[in-house]
């Protein structure tokens, strides 16, 4: 009961300062901003984005002309002038050799805003041209046909996976890491705050109650942050499975356990913050490099892929439990030592 009172006190002070509200708003803002960025990326970089570039041609290339329907120029100088004046969006220099390799020089605007629109179109044109030449040379051509589940032919835009990857493989792990950092730093702060008053506090409650109280407070904050980022994504129209609560919480508890261990071995709060940050960098890099990790689990569970995740989830839960128990003992020792 005493531990619950301590947890309540910590959470009350957190809400009194209103800064946690700012953090929660940040998580919502992050999910919205990222949605805007993701939409912008798809709109700008998608090769299927409808834009018909005007191509200028210098040289003799009858097959290419049939494929691309270009404007012809007599020489490169006048073609480049045409490019500069905006009559064409790209200049192709090509003297066609239908039976051999064609080395094509393509002049595109240096300004990225123009080339972003032109290059995807050129890619489509040259792929088509390549297919025609391959057929002419008797090289088998790849043709991937796509159908919906009813068997009707469908056209899937090229590059659509960019948005999907950005949301599920970049953004969601980033938010999980962010929650972990927030919880870790919060843990160090509440423990050091308690250290100042521990002498008085421990006259009425035991060290164990203090530690459990802190864990309850940290767990509540973790749960709150996790639910808010999931709701933020859902409000922005992203499908996030409720199962992603688990890896987010697992990561927060792991981060908090590391923070508690750091508290146990550090001399001051600023040193603890520094050590925690230094440990966090290789930890995150290892989670990105090796799989399964809490981050790979967060990607898969946010997509609702549950099949083989249960084993890993149990394994990470056990690791968390061991880390938490060890860190509790370390914290207990540190508080007792400080008396």
């Amino acid at each position: 009961m005493a531990s619950l009172v301590i947890a309540k006190k910590d959470l009350k002070s957190l809400f009194r300062e209103k800064t946690v509200v700012l953090t929660l708003l940040l998580l919502v803002a992050l999910s919205s901003l990222s949605q805007i960025v993701a939409t912008g990326l798809v709109f700008l970089y998608n090769p299927s984005f409808e834009f018909k570039a005007r191509i200028g041609l210098v040289g003799n290339a009858p097959i290419f002309e049939r494929v691309a329907n270009p404007m012809r120029f007599e020489n490169l100088s006048s073609a480049l002038n045409g490019l500069r004046k905006g009559y064409v969006d790209a200049v192709v220099v090509l003297n066609e050799n239908p039976k051999g390799v064609n080395y094509v020089e393509v002049y595109v605007p240096k300004e990225e805003v123009k080339s972003i629109r032109v290059i995807p179109y050129l890619k489509r044109v040259f792929e088509e041209y390549q297919t025609v030449l391959r057929e002419l040379n008797g090289i088998p051509v790849l043709n991937v046909r796509s159908y919906d589940t009813e068997g009707r032919p469908i056209s899937v835009p090229e590059g659509i996976s960019l948005k999907f990857r950005f949301i599920y493989v970049v953004l969601i792990p980033t938010v999980v890491v962010l929650c972990g950092i927030i919880v870790g730093i919060y843990t160090i702060d509440v423990l050091y705050e308690e250290l100042k008053t521990s002498e008085v506090l421990l006259t009425s409650v035991g060290v164990k109650d203090v530690v459990i109280g802190k864990i309850v407070a940290v767990f509540t904050v973790s749960l709150m942050l996790t639910l808010v980022w999931i709701l933020g994504f859902v409000a922005n129209g992203v499908n996030v499975s409720i199962a992603s609560v688990f890896p987010s919480l697992t990561f927060c508890i792991l981060s908090s356990s590391i923070a508690m261990m750091v508290f146990g071995f550090s001399e001051s709060r600023e040193q603890a913050h520094l050590i925690y940050s230094l440990l966090f960098i290789p930890l995150i890099l290892s989670f990105l490099t090796f799989t399964p990790s809490p981050l790979s689990l967060s990607v898969r569970l946010s997509l609702g892929i549950l099949d083989d995740c249960l084993t890993f989830a149990i394994a990470f839960g056990v690791v968390d439990l061991i880390m938490l128990t060890t860190s509790c003992l370390i914290v207990k020792g540190r508080i007792t030592k400080s008396l």
């Binding site: 390799v101 094509v104 393509v106 240096k110 300004e111 040259f126 041209y129 040379n137 090289i139």
Partner: peptide
């Protein structure tokens, strides 16, 4: 090499 009948070199030119 015959499998790749088209090879492209992009040259960026300022249009301003």
């Amino acid at each position: 090499e015959r499998a790749f009948p088209v090879l492209v070199k992009l040259i960026k030119v300022p249009t301003k």
